[in-house]
Amino acid sequence: MNVELQLCGIGDKFIINNIYPLYLYDLSEIWERDTNRYGVFEDDDTRTLAEQIQVFDVWWEHPGVLFPYLIKVDDLPAGLIFVATPPYTPCPSYIDYYLNEFFLMRKYRGKGIGEIAMRQLLDMMPGRWELQTNPTARNERAIKFYRKTLHACTNGEYTEELGRHPEQGEMLVFRF
């Protein structure tokens, strides 16, 4: 099994656009969110997935600041990672990178692929990192993943605390 983390160029943006609704579907269970009246996971009246994906254009408008990655397994899309740098982070300026989104399709979970992708990411982008995730029991799978993966990737050199995201509210904050 070959795992590759690939910076997604504008020419492959459609692949992330295809994967992202799956991510939002998974998150709906954790955040207890419904679709809007059109069946789209948005809080507003976005009517189609085509309208929804326009929001992600920003990830390709700021190269060197915003980094949309595809996780590929044996050359097939398996997930995504979005990395932001200031000023596109919800946290103080003492970090270099913010792990904005991390998603691995269900077929690929529990096989070490997420850890491999995280290792590749940290090797490509060394520095001070932060990630935030939902702190509730509904998100226990992701919390266990981050604890295990960060312990392995940082030799246990990470911190974990409750914090507050400006839009999401209380979050579990990891710094490494």
Rank of each mutant, 00 (worst) to 15 (best):
V3I: 14
G11P: 00
D12T: 12
F14E: 14
I16K: 01
I16N: 04
Y20M: 08
L22F: 09
Y25S: 04
L27S: 03
W31K: 02
E32C: 14
R37G: 13
R37F: 10
E42R: 13
D45C: 12
L49C: 06
Q52I: 00
I53K: 05
Q54R: 12
W59G: 02
W60F: 10
W60E: 00
P63L: 05
P63H: 02
G64R: 06
G64I: 11
L66V: 07
Y69S: 13
Y69D: 06
I71R: 03
K72S: 13
G79R: 05
L80H: 07
I81H: 00
A84H: 06
T85A: 08
T89M: 07
C91H: 08
C91S: 13
P92T: 12
S93Y: 11
Y94A: 05
Y94E: 12
I95P: 01
D96T: 07
L99K: 05
N100Q: 15
E101D: 15
E101V: 14
F102P: 02
F102Q: 04
F102L: 13
L104A: 04
R106M: 15
G110K: 02
I113E: 03
I116D: 10
A117K: 00
A117V: 09
R119T: 07
R128Q: 09
T133G: 00
P135A: 08
A137H: 03
R141M: 09
F145M: 10
T149Q: 02
L150T: 00
H151S: 11
T154Y: 06
N155A: 02
E157M: 11
T159D: 15
E160Q: 07
L162V: 12
H165K: 03
E167N: 04
G169Y: 08
G169W: 06
E170C: 01
E170T: 14
